[in-house]
């Protein structure tokens, strides 16, 4: 699991690719986030071989990486790509993820830079909601 600073994540999100990225901001301490993680896993599994990828961005403290985050991922058997965003001050990055995000977790961004499509959700998503949202994107 990679630990990244925001510029690295931003570069990743801005990459000119035709792959649709489902980017979910979460944390092990966020109960609704933990509840919706299986939905992202299901969507990932349903889209293997397609140009759809899931990226889970943990906002856990970097100090909790070995103690909490890694054991959590292992225990849940999460196979989606996961990074830990090691930033303490949301004022340096939050608005640059999306201007509509007020900072509540969970937050999900679906983005396709090729078609310039974006959709954002500042609430928990079900598999059905996620699938419906994804239908508008190329795959």
């Amino acid at each position: 699991m990679a630990v990244v600073k925001f510029p690295e994540l931003q570069q990743r999100l801005a990459r000119p690719t035709d792959t649709t990225y489902i980017v979910n901001f979460w944390a092990t301490w966020c109960a609704p986030c933990v509840q919706e993680l299986p939905a992202f896993e299901q969507v990932r599994a349903a889209n293997v071989g397609k140009k759809v990828k899931v990226l889970l961005v943990s906002l856990d403290y970097a100090s909790q990486l070995d103690k909490k985050v890694k054991p959590f991922l292992k225990q849940r058997g999460l196979q989606s790509e996961t990074v830990l965003l090691n930033e303490t001050d949301p004022n340096t990055w939050l608005n640059q993820v999306d201007g509509k995000w007020s900072g509540a977790l969970p937050f999900t961004l679906i983005v396709n830079n090729h078609t310039r499509q974006r959709a954002t959700f500042e609430h928990e998503l079900s598999v059905a909601e996620l699938a419906t949202a994804l239908q508008k994107f190329p795959n």
Binding site: C30, A31, P32, L59, P90, N91, L94, N95, G103, A104, L105, P106, E122, H123, E124
Partner: peptide, 10 residues
């Protein structure tokens, strides 16, 4: 006006 991260209101 500043930004913060937190738990969604239930």
């Amino acid at each position: 006006t500043t930004q913060a991260v937190g738990c969604s209101i239930r």
